[in-house]
């Protein structure tokens, strides 16, 4: 199957004051199109850093990052922003919705960067909200939604521009077990029924079980791969 994500010999170092920390060390990684991958590991293992590199939020210190056919480690800030808008949908642990906008307007945000008309943007946002089961909550603001509903809105926002890849950073970290399972089930459905490639960071083994593959990181290195039964 075609690799949608390919990392070769990727290293990431951070300098804090006089100290340089190597967060990722010589990572080689390939994720196939249509896969659902869980990045696992203890705190400080580098999983969020790896996710940021895949999502084009950060640049590696060395190595090559190719996502959706583009070598993104060489892209400038403006080009990388444009690339993210086209290819990546982000889901965060704390939803990161705009509190002053309704669910509908939040979902429409990525579409503001497209040439779609206002009515088309509205229609697409309604469709995305319907896909996550919140078709009736479009007029509600984030403060009027439960955690699970807010995360569904965030997933709808991530989906609305039909990105190549969904990047999720601890998407269930702020939710109770039952709600977390609903969200994970939704992600699994998006992967299985809509063919969305998903890379998800989690430290929760139960959450990781929803993925097709689990990549284990420790101290900045990939230490193993597990395929979910």
């Amino acid at each position: 199957m075609t690799a949608i994500v390919s990392l070769q010999n990727v290293t990431k170092r951070y300098t804090r004051g006089k100290q340089t920390v190597e967060v990722l060390q010589r990572i080689d990684l390939s994720i196939a199109q249509g896969d659902f991958v869980a990045l696992m590991g203890p705190s400080g293992s580098g999983k969020t850093t790896l996710l940021n590199l895949i999502g084009g939020l950060d640049q590696p210190s060395t190595g090559e990052v190719v996502v959706a056919g583009e070598r993104i480690d060489k892209l400038s800030g403006a080009k990388l922003a444009k690339w993210r808008a086209r290819h990546i949908g982000f889901v965060f642990q704390f939803y990161n919705l705009m509190p002053m906008l309704t669910a509908q307007r939040n979902v429409e945000l990525p579409l503001l960067l497209t040439s779609l008309s206002a009515s088309q943007r509205r229609k697409n946002a309604e469709t995305a909200l319907a896909v996550v089961g919140l078709g009736e909550r479009g007029k509600h603001k984030p403060s009027e939604l439960s955690g699970g509903q807010a995360q569904r809105v965030a997933i709808a926002r991530a989906l609305v521009a039909d990105p190549t890849l969904l990047v999720c950073d601890e998407p269930t970290g702020d939710l109770d077990r039952a709600t977390a399972d609903e969200i994970l089930h939704l992600l699994q459905t998006l992967n299985r029924e809509h063919g969305k490639t998903i890379v998800m960071v989690t430290h929760d083994p139960k959450a990781a079980e929803y993925a097709s593959h689990q990549l284990h990181l420790d101290k900045g290195q990939l230490v193993g791969t597990t395929t979910t039964a």
Binding site: A78, R84, I88, F90, N96, P110
Partner: peptide, 16 residues
């Protein structure tokens, strides 16, 4: 600041 960062994450350029 976090909201502005989210906008950038979604693809809003620095200039925008």
């Amino acid at each position: 600041i976090p909201e502005l960062a989210v906008l950038k994450t979604l693809g809003f350029s620095d200039t925008r």
